[in-house]
Design a protein around this nucleic acid. Structure first.
Lengths: 196, 196
DNA sequence: CTGTTACTTCAGAAAATCCTGAAAATTCAG
DNA sequence: CTGAATTTTCAGGATTTTCTGAAGTAACAG
């Protein structure tokens, strides 16, 4: 591995975190190198930077392309393939959330829907289905919220995030003004107090 | 494995998803069984339900306790340890987010802070540090938002989620009323510092 | 064509992770 | 105390994942 110390530290960290993030060390390191580079990066650069076999780099690039986290960028006068990350950091965050949702949540949503269609054959199954219903409700609510929010342009999104829970004040305030006009959100899953 | 079909299907699914979620198959299956059960569950129940060695169940329980996703619940007249999940589904979601943040994000935040303190020794490092700064800003903004939101009581939280991006209408509206009072959000990629 | 450069595939080696059974430790009733 | 019930620990075998080097394919310049 052959990188300036500051960059190397970050790249090694991404490698270590890889397994927690559901990617492997090489994929993590390769992404880190591309992310920090101020120009498109080719496979040879990566072999040099992270010090693994070329075939391993090729597989990491394929994986990162399947996540749509890097894209091919041809460099004039170069025959080799060069890659960059998505340029805007917010585009990266959006893509990450989208992909993790697709891989970690959607399959479960599908299974839940299937199982909720079936008729329970016992009290035990009836209760289990109730729990599945709760889980289904929460996932639908949260992912539905994100699908909606995700369409906002970045500036609005940042505004919203900066506001944090102060948003609630605005709501209370609006509630007061609009009292009687309806428009209330309905709660799925028992809105009980904190479980402790 | 010895479970009613509906429950078994869910448990097997959780086992398969385990690797994507950063836990192993047994941990996933054990959690699923406890989650769907009508009553506290003991290690023997789990050995029976998921069909793995008792020591494996013990390790899975330890892991789930380290996530604080299950808790010990003593059953009167029983010497064995019984477990339940957190009762409220929202408490579960909150705990999951909290733990994944702790394991998947906080370490990176620490590294980023360290590396951002150092002085770049080259143009290459200077640019890399700029990228790290962008990443740091986004993570601070998003986690800061969550830390804030997370304190809301569940009913309010559900309300907020149900509203989705309609919330923005409320904001625009508030903007209009307060125009001239100086309350605009700014800072693309930059952290905190919102004014109100 | 032919040779060079670059990318991809893949079988099996290497490494990491998971799982088991046996043994040790703990808890508690008598 | 003793002994049964239960949980925990852990060495090493089983399985899965990652990584490599070699062979294969593709693109292209001369």
């Amino acid at each position: 591995m052959n990188l300036p110390p500051l960059i190397q530290a970050f790249v090694l960290h991404f490698g270590e975190m890889g397994s927690r993030w559901g990617i492997n060390r090489t994929v993590g390191q390769v992404y880190a190198v591309i992310f920090l580079a101020n120009r498109p990066v080719c496979a040879d650069d990566l072999v040099d930077a992270v010090g693994v076999a070329r075939s391993n780099v090729a597989m990491a690039l394929k994986e990162l392309q399947s996540w749509e986290l890097i894209r091919l960028k041809h460099v004039p006068g170069e025959r080799r393939d060069f890659y960059t990350t998505l340029d805007d950091i917010w585009a990266i965050v959006r893509k990450l959330v989208e992909q993790r949702k697709r891989r970690e949540i959607d399959p479960t949503l599908t299974v839940l829907r299937e199982l909720l269609m079936q008729s329970p054959a016992s009290e035990e199954e009836r209760f289990a289905q109730e729990r599945m219903q709760e889980m289904h409700g929460v996932i639908e609510l949260v992912t539905g919220w994100y699908d909606d929010i995700e369409r906002l342009e970045t500036e609005r999104l940042v505004q919203l995030l900066s506001l944090g829970s102060k948003i609630v004040k605005a709501l209370e305030w609006k509630d007061k003004l609009f009292v009687g006009k309806g428009a209330r959100g309905k709660a799925k899953g028992a809105p009980a107090g904190e479980g402790d």
